[in-house]
């Protein structure tokens, strides 16, 4: 079980229940994530998908290095924790020896699109049958606010304190568009989790991806553009506004590649 302990007030009573965790797939442990962070939202909706589609016994996940390194403390499905950037290689190992199980990775932008780019691209290019849930918040969270491969031009981080300078620090990487060009990739979509509509659509995208995985159509990636209030030094609401106005302007929402078309 979790090696974290929190004391908390249990406010759940039947008469005030308007919102419920997926009880079988999300462990009853408080998230360690910062207030306003979207990791807990994405964890919850993906576990809802697993419970509703009854795949919790048939799926194995891979946790990254990054803020979601402890994903296995919350997600009640079998999981492996991978070295930084290696989730797609670990997932390849799992899927190849258990081709009839569903496999997913859960990775941030640094893990997937910086240190793990080679593993990501080659797993996609082999058409590995697993789902990548890609959380893109444009900044390093766990190490406290350094520049990510997806950091926007001019965006201030602790390692781009004067704003990301394209001339010396390169361009923000649209890894989803890049991967969509590969024939082994079945499904790439970009969603968000900063508002209720975005969360609903992200959940639908995850459901679709699982359907495609059941059919073994190839590599699937669901990018979720999210906030990082702590490292953007914003309130949760301000950070949501940043996602809406800045991030989505550069990372537009919608399907980038769907099976059999587009």
């Amino acid at each position: 079980m979790s090696d974290m302990n929190f004391d908390r007030l249990d406010i759940r009573t039947d008469d005030c229940m308007v919102y419920e965790k997926p009880l079988d797939t999300l462990l009853d442990v408080p998230f360690h994530y910062c207030p306003g962070c979207a990791h807990s939202t994405v964890h919850k909706i993906f576990m809802e998908v697993c419970q509703e589609m009854e795949i919790q016994y048939d799926i194995v996940g891979v946790a990254p290095v990054g803020c979601s390194v402890f994903a296995y403390h919350y997600l009640n499905v079998d999981m492996q924790q991978a070295a930084h950037g290696r989730a797609c290689a670990v997932a390849t190992g799992i899927k190849r020896v258990m081709p009839d199980k569903l496999v997913f990775t859960y990775q941030g932008d640094g893990d997937l699109a910086a240190i793990g780019t080679a593993e990501t691209v080659h797993a996609a290019n082999r058409g590995e049958n697993f789902l990548v849930i890609f959380i893109n918040n444009g900044i390093y969270g766990m190490t406290s606010g350094q520049m990510a491969p997806t950091t926007l031009e001019g965006m201030v981080t602790t390692t781009s304190p004067h704003g990301r300078d394209i001339a010396t620090q390169g361009y923000p990487l649209k890894i989803s568009e890049l991967l969509a060009n590969l024939p082994g990739v079945a499904y790439v979509t970009r969603q968000t989790a900063y508002n209720a509509a975005g969360v609903r659509k992200t959940k639908k995208a995850l459901q679709k991806a699982i359907e495609y995985q059941k059919k073994k159509l190839g590599f699937c990636l669901v990018e979720v553009v999210t906030n990082c209030p702590s490292n953007l030094k914003m309130t949760p609401l301000e950070s949501n506004k940043f996602v809406e106005e800045q991030m989505l302007a550069f990372y537009p929402l919608g399907d980038i590649k769907v099976p059999g078309g587009k």
Binding site: V62, Q80, A82, R96
Partner: peptide
Amino acid sequence: SEVAAINMIYGAAGC
């Protein structure tokens, strides 16, 4: 790469 190979080993050994 060998980096990927050993991590594939990790994943499959973990099963």
